[in-house]
Amino acid sequence: MLKYAVRRIIYMIITLWVIVTATFFLMKLLPGNPFANASAKLPPEALAIIIQQYGLDQPEWKQYLKYVVNITQGDFGVSYQYPTRTVAEVISKSFQASLELGLESLFLAIIVGLTLGTVAALKHNKLGDYSAMFVALVGISIPSFVVGPLLSLYVGVKAGWLPPGLWDGPEHRIMPAIALSFGTIAILARMMRASMLEVSSMDYIKTAKSKGLSTTAVVRNHMVRNAILPVVTILGPIAVNVITGTLVVERIFAVPGLGAQFVESIYSNDYTMITGLTLFYASILVVVMFVTDIVYGLVDPRIRVAGRR
C-alpha cells in the first residue's frame, strides 16, 4: 500500500509539473506583453526598470524556475483586468461560493443518484427501471449549460418560484445546485444500478434471503452496502463534472464564484487570470483523483490489484 501511495504521489507531481510547464510556455507564446498598454506612455528607462522588476530580462530558464517557485507558493501573478488585485486574492475570495455550490450539488446528486440507481435495480426491467434510466439518460444528454438557462427561465422568470440568479439567501442556492447536479445524478444512477444488479446475483444475497431476512434488511444491509463500494471509483469523473459545471452554472445564475470569474476573464482576455485559474482548477482535480485512488485502494484492495493489470 505504501509503495502504491508513493508511486501515485510521484505521478501526481509529474502531472502537475507537466501542467505548470505547459502553461508557462503557453504564456510565453502569448501575443504582446503585460505592459503593452502602459508602455506607450512610458519612457524607455522606466520600461527597462519595470521589465527588470518583473524579471523579464532574465534568461528563460531562470524565469521558468521563478515561475515554478512562485506557483508552488500560491503566487499566480497580478490580474490584467484589475491591476490592483493578485490572482491569488481573487481565487481566495471567490472560491468560497464555488466550493459551497459544488458541495451542495454533490450532496443532492449523491442522494438522488443513488436512490434512482437502487430503485432501477430493484425494479429491474420494470417500469421503475425504465423511468429511472430514462431520467439518467436525459441527465447525461442534457448538459448543465442547457439545464441552467431553462431552469432559470421557466422556474425563475416565468413561474417566479425561485430567484433566477444571484447568491444571497438559501433560496438562491437551490436552482444552481439542481442545474449542477443534473449530470452527476445521471452518472451515479447508472453506476449504482449496474453495481446493484451485479451484487444482487451474489451468493451472500441468496444466503441472506434464505435466512429469512426481510427484503428491507437484505437491500439495506447487504446489497446497498456492497454496491456502493465501486461507486467510489467514479469520484474522479464526478469531480471533473462538478468543477467544469461550475464554470457555466455560475455564469448563468450570476454566482460570484471562481467559475464566473474564469469565464469573465476569458471574455476580457485577462491572461494571467486565465492561466492562474486553470492551474488552480487543474491542481484540485489532480489532487481529487489522487485522493480517490488512495481511498478506494484502502476501501477495497481488489480494485487496486485489478487496476494494476
Partner: peptide
C-alpha cells in the same frame, strides 16, 4: 500522465492562445 490532465480546462487555455 496525459489521462490525469484535465482536458477541458487546458483546452480553454490552449484555445485562448
Amino acid at each position: 500522465i496525459i489521462y490525469a490532465i484535465p482536458l477541458l480546462l487546458l483546452a480553454i487555455l490552449f484555445i485562448v492562445f
